[in-house]
Structures are given as C-alpha cells and as structure tokens.
Simulated scan of single mutants.
Amino acid sequence: MASGAIEYKSGTLQVSNYTNLLETKTNSGITCIWSGKFMRVNSYQIDFKWKFDWNELKKQGVDELTGHITVSLTNDRFTAKTINVKITEDNQEITKEVWGIYYSYNVYYEYSLTPHYALISEKPGYDKMFAPSDQNDTILVVDKKKLHVNKSFLSYHSEYFRKLFSSDYKQGDAKPPKRQRKQVPDNKEVQTQEFPIKDVSFKDFALLLSTFYPNPVFPTDATVEKLLELARRFVISSVINIIEYHLLNNSRINSEKTLWMADEYVMPKLLEKCIRGLNTVEKAKKLDQSPEYEKLSDSAKAKALDRLIKLF
C-alpha cells in the first residue's frame, strides 16, 4: 500500500571538473547524498549520482520507494533530465550521465518518491493473541471466527463494549449473545458468552483490538485510516490517541490528508500542527486544490483562513 509522495528540491550548486560531493540532505526520513562531476578532464560528460538512505522509513514498514528524480540547469545549456526510479535497498545508488557543451554548470535536482508499505498478513499472531485462556472470559464472533477476549479490559477501553456486555444491551449491531460451555480444571462447566460483531472483517477488527491489547501492534501510515474509522465506530479513544501520536511524530502522509484526518476524527494537537504548517501561499493553494479541502468542517476551514490572514 502506498502513502503520499515525499518531495524535495535542492539548492543550486556548481558542477565542474573539480567537484564530486554536491549535497547531503535529510528530508522526511530520506537522506540523499548527491554528487556530480565531469567524467574526465576536457570531457563534456557529467556523471550524477544519488545515494538514498531510508532506513528510518524501513523501520516504519516501508519496503520500497518509487517515483522520479529530475536534474536541471538554471539556464538552457541542457534539457532537464528525469529518471524514473524504484528503490528497494537501503543506500541504493541512482546514476545518470548527462552531456553538455561546457565545462561548468549551475545545477539543481528535485525528487518525488512515494513510500510503499509491506502488506500486512491477515493473522499476525492473532491465533495466539485471541486464544482461550484463564484471562479471557468472553468470545467475539467476527467473520465466523472466534476471538477470546477479556470483558473487563474491553469495557474499560470502550463504551461500545461496555454497553454490549451489559445485561440490558438492546442495540441492533449484534444478536443476543449465545452461551458456550467450557470445562475448567475442577471439572465444573461454566458458560462463556458469544457476541457476534457485524459488518467488519476479521482482519480489520483483529488489527483494531491488537492496537491496544497487551503486546500492541503499532499503527503505520498504511493502517491509520482504517483504524480511525473503526476506533470511532467502536468508541475506543485510546486508539485515536495512539494514531494521533503516530501522525504527529512518524507519519509521511501528505499534509492535506493529515489535516482532514485531524479534523474528521477530532485530534486537536494534530490539527494545531497542521494549521501551523500552512505558512506559505503555495501550501495554501495546494490545500485548496486538494480533494480533502471540501471534506473539511467549517471550523477547520475558518482556522486555516485565520492562519493565512495573520501570516500575510
């Protein structure tokens, strides 16, 4: 699954017979070392190289970057060159040979790279996590699969489950609970309730619970939107708080979508950061032209406008 593109534009630097390393720059978890030099004295062939260190993104679940690099002149001495890239290894090197007619050029480059996250397997340890145990006293049935859970733990985290497990539960989201008999060590039978949960896949629901269950699975850019949707449905504020922390500190999702999520799912710290980030006319135009802008609440639009008025 892909996230928003990471973009960067370098400053203008001179490349000649005497240059090699031109720039080292870190941007949104990607460190790029850019070098350029003429292949040999009295030759018009320039050898450009970009080495990408993106280990920080790998730690967040990214398994490849795709996009393009463009190298340009500040005048028309050679046509801008664009290289389509697919980066799958850390410290992978991209090269491009360019021919000109002079021995020195003022050049700059820019890239647009989209992180792609590894697909999440359907059951990453869920069998063990939701297996029968002395601590689990209730069964949730999702997609005909049974998740053994602790009623008190879920009730503590979620008003939805607190109501579901109450004796006077009457909402239509689940059928009346069934009871399943099980043996305990003293050979006495006890009854374990089963609660069907509708309109959600096992994979998504198990991922939601595992986000705040013991030994939690941390959210990634690939999972945050689905988790936010389910956290709101099942009224689990702790999951929204966990995701807000991720979006504040680790996410590479573009600012327009992040602003929309902050507004839609009521994450005040994230909303404040996004509004502060609207500090140029270009960013304001990009937000206005994005599909997320129309989905913003009137309150968020007013905050964005107020920020721009104060800035300019």
Rank of each mutant, 00 (worst) to 15 (best):
S158M: 11
Q193F: 14
V200F: 13
L209A: 06
E159M: 10
V217I: 15
G172D: 08
K226F: 09
S167W: 06
N187E: 05
F212A: 03
Q193S: 15
V224E: 01
S201V: 06
R179V: 00
L227M: 07
E159Y: 03
S166Y: 11
Y160T: 03
D221E: 05
S210D: 10
E225T: 10
D168V: 10
R179M: 05
T211W: 01
V184Q: 08
P177M: 00
Y160N: 09
T220G: 12
L164H: 03
F202K: 10
E194H: 03
V200G: 10
S155V: 11
K163W: 06
P216A: 00
R233Q: 13
K178M: 04
D204A: 14
Y156W: 09
K178H: 03
Q193N: 13
K226Q: 13
F165N: 04
R179S: 01
H157A: 03
Y160G: 06
K226Y: 08
T220N: 10
K182C: 02
L228M: 14
F212P: 10
L207M: 14
S167V: 09
R233N: 04
S166N: 12
N215D: 15
L154M: 02
I197D: 02
P177S: 07
F195E: 03
S167K: 01
E159S: 15
V217F: 11
P219A: 06
F202C: 03
L154H: 07
D186H: 04
F195A: 05
S158I: 05
Q171Y: 13
A222R: 05
F153Y: 15
